[in-house]
Amino acid sequence: MIKVQKLNKFYGSFRALSDVSFEVKTGEIMGFLGPNGAGKTTTMKILAGYMPPSSGTAWINDLNIEEQSLSVRQNVGYLPEANPLYTDFTVEETLRYISEVRQIDKDAVAQAIDKVVRQCGLAGVYYKPIEQLSKGFRQRVGLAQALIHEPSILILDEPTVGLDPKQIIEIRELIKNIGASRTVLLSTHILQEVHAICDKVTIISGGRIVASDTPEGLQQKSEEQVLGSLYVKMAGTIREVESALKTVKGVTSVTKKDQEKKNINGYTVQIEKGADIRNDIFRLAKEKDLQLFELTPEKASLEDVFLELTK
């Protein structure tokens, strides 16, 4: 379990984090979403024990990150943003060194290494120096070092950044499997990643938490609050349809979106917040004898939510 309470961080006079609070329950995968410079990495560095907050605090498995820093670090597997590794080491040397510094029992080292090598698909490159590995394999080594001591908490800072689409899918799959038995905090600015992996999303912008919910919950809220538009496909001349739609109470604007065939066009109808005018449009079509082909509330994507919240 990760519990963050009113975390603040100042770099000189610059406030990188403002009263950041959130919670990741045991067994949850939480996506930490935000534009570049929003405060994701700063939060993760604080949780991983790299630096302390200016004020506020956090608990990892009920251990205070400042007062019980060493125990916290024992419980956490951390993959930093740029996945730093000793490039002159081989994969074997890296994992051996990490298992030593993680104080894994000598008799259990071989088994622990074997497990992460299998889990992360590193058998083929086990004796290769890190400097000869592709970015995808380096990322796997980064994940392996974070997993080798079987931590109950994983903090992964942009684990798929810079990977090709195939590698992204593989790493996501890996994180999903790992996350089945662990608490994972994962930062990203790739929205599909959140959809693909996360149980919960927290959006941070300008050092402040602006939303926290399930991906579906956020999307639902956005449909209610963020977007207010309908897609209407009707037969008739553009001028005729546009002027007719504008007469409906609650409509703020009508714009042509696409065309199916001559005189059958699709329109985006912007409506006032909270208004539901679907029935009115249906009635209008009947009254004015305009053939209605389609009437759909336009759904907000997570991108829309993200853009709206991080404006």
Binding site: R73, Q74, V76, P80, P84, I98, R102
Partner: peptide, 12 residues
């Protein structure tokens, strides 16, 4: 190389 971040976040 950025490995200092990895090093200081180990239980050491």
């Amino acid at each position: 190389q950025g490995t200092l971040e990895l090093l200081v976040t180990m239980p050491i």
